[in-house]
Design a protein around this nucleic acid. Sequence first.
DNA 1: AATGAATGAGGATTCATTCAT
DNA 2: AATGAATGAATCCTCATTCAT
Lengths: 224, 224, 224, 224
Amino acid sequence: MGAARARVRPRKLPVQRRSRQTVDAILRGAARVLVRRGWAGMTTNHVAVAAGVSIGSLYEYFPGKEALVLALAERHLDAAEASLLAHLGEVLPRALALPLGEVVRALVSVMVALHAEDPRLHRALFEVAPRLPELAGRVRRLEEASVRMLEGLLRAHPEARVRDAGLSARLVVELVEALTHRWVVGADGAPVAADRMADELAAMVTGYLRGAERAAGGAGLAAT
Amino acid sequence: MGAARARVRPRKLPVQRRSRQTVDAILRGAARVLVRRGWAGMTTNHVAVAAGVSIGSLYEYFPGKEALVLALAERHLDAAEASLLAHLGEVLPRALALPLGEVVRALVSVMVALHAEDPRLHRALFEVAPRLPELAGRVRRLEEASVRMLEGLLRAHPEARVRDAGLSARLVVELVEALTHRWVVGADGAPVAADRMADELAAMVTGYLRGAERAAGGAGLAAT
Amino acid sequence: MGAARARVRPRKLPVQRRSRQTVDAILRGAARVLVRRGWAGMTTNHVAVAAGVSIGSLYEYFPGKEALVLALAERHLDAAEASLLAHLGEVLPRALALPLGEVVRALVSVMVALHAEDPRLHRALFEVAPRLPELAGRVRRLEEASVRMLEGLLRAHPEARVRDAGLSARLVVELVEALTHRWVVGADGAPVAADRMADELAAMVTGYLRGAERAAGGAGLAAT
Amino acid sequence: MGAARARVRPRKLPVQRRSRQTVDAILRGAARVLVRRGWAGMTTNHVAVAAGVSIGSLYEYFPGKEALVLALAERHLDAAEASLLAHLGEVLPRALALPLGEVVRALVSVMVALHAEDPRLHRALFEVAPRLPELAGRVRRLEEASVRMLEGLLRAHPEARVRDAGLSARLVVELVEALTHRWVVGADGAPVAADRMADELAAMVTGYLRGAERAAGGAGLAAT
DNA sequence: AATGAATGAGGATTCATTCAT
DNA sequence: AATGAATGAATCCTCATTCAT
């Protein structure tokens, strides 16, 4: 594993301007190839060609294809994180004063917007994530932070009625993540508008969090 | 495509008993390898070794790894479909007479039970699905059927209050699918019990479908 | 080499009628496959399928594909030899009394007729011959016998004028063999009729053997 | 066909000096292997070993053994063509003024010289030709050009007496080609000297083309 | 820095051949 | 006699990676 891990970190940092351009070209090429051929079909040689760069140069900066994808993912997640923080900065301070539905709607909208940006790359990266611990970890940390944040909100907001704030927060985060993901990936047939999508998600979440009347949950089929 | 597709169908059917055992062993080996190393890391040679079978025998029956995974998926989905149908046969006839919460709880329980069976194989198969049109199609058809069924129920059930039965049905199916999937996959740390999980999902769905008070959904952050 | 040679002789002789049919079917299948796919593309499995026989049965009678081709060639050459002998029996006794042109025409016609029979198999067998010593030997022996026969004729016939009966006989046999072969193989575009072909070949050979006026053969370019 | 054909063209052209040496070594190795083991027995791995080059390097430049043989053949034919043209340039201008026998002797000598160069490679290449359309085409074109040239000569030369200049030209070209080929290939036992061989061939051809007295061609055995 | 030639381990696949049934 | 399941050596070929230029 140690050896394998060595393959994941960028080799050297590009300092001069020319090399930054090279790195950029490589990453753009990597993104194209990853999207077009998937993780298994992506090869360093393809990437080099797609980037218009020699294979030697590629290895100058990236020790393997994991490193490429990781760098790609890092850029993607950096952007996501930044956008998330910016938007949270707007809503959170007033969150307790606003109706729950409105807060939820705002948060959901951010997620939807986030995913709508480069859906194909997003999808491809997610396909790889489970096989790249570094990436998986980063994703998990981001999700974890969101869960904590929402958990705090649930404990404090007057309208929220949930049995277990931690669990509910996690479920909501996963729900939004998963459905937005699918919305963006399965975008064929009758594509649902982003606004409409956000409405429905918000309705789901708000209803759940207000928790008015719990499902009586009688002896369902689960008993079988 | 034609050529690629030729790699996907089983080669010949095992007629003698001995060969049926071989095919079984191969598929078991394939499942183990797929789970352990993922789609990209799965090789026919690994599978043959894991199955305790010569590589020649593997190719006697399967023309490549796609065919292996497809056969695996078909078994998995056949079982899922059968189980689904059996349970639906119990709930559906009385569905309109029962409270919505109870119906939902029953349906959700079936899904959860379905996923709990062989979660790691389930996860691995889902990872491949997007790259195997045959498999993707089969999965989509099963989902589609579920959506139609639920849509019909939503239109008829007195408690259901949704703007668009088709969209809501799809979202609910995806929600249950996705969250159960994650529940099963991310089963580390503090694993949530199946019953508890079913409770929470049922609560989410029921709340959403009863649609009591829609989220007021003011100008969310999406506007930004 | 010893081991390899063991692969060439038929394994056991078919005694019962059923087995003779099996052997026949196998050889017919082998001929079809050899013609369609060439020596390199011919496999024992293909032959078995084409013959409608199990691979096991094939190996019951033939220890490998060389043996198949050899048996095929033997049949082919047996027939050729028989036909040749029959026709020679007609011409030779009166050969010295007939004009040389007529004798030659008769011999050439036999060769042409021989090749016209199953040209595609003929061609395929010739393609393999150089790699199968047994076959090559058999072909060479047949040719050698023809050369001896013609040599004797040349020494005795009053019209024949050649410097070296042995060499001329060999060249004539090869000439007829080679041109008939090509005639039969390259049969596309404007196919020449068998009769016409025989005429031309006979003209060539007769002219050469009568040797009237030798080419003055001055200092040709060969000097360069 | 498309896919198969893709296996036939060289992959990339060697630009640096080092790579040109590699390509050369590979082709030399390919020639050795082809000669020693024949088309069916030739493998890319054998060639790589014989060339003292890694298998990867071989595939860098040639996508398969067809491509190797084709490149080999192209070199061979290029040389043959060049030599042919050079010699023709000497004879043709004065061809009509010279006795037919002399012209023929000159042309035949060129062919013989051509074949005497690398007979074993020549033979091996001819063995493959029928299975490689590209190669077959190239050979056919060269032959066709020779036929046209000779046909023109036959129509114009005062001594030539043939019924059908086209047919006779073709037969003569094939005759010379075939017999020289066999001369070179079957060079065992009592090898005939090149000069002697040219003499005999020239005698055959000249006699035929002068056509003095046609063979009376009575009712030969062909009637049977 | 950049290039691209060279490498070879490793994965896919075929097919001659055996042998239990 | 016939069958066809099983075998695995041998082949084809790719692609990550290094290194001389």
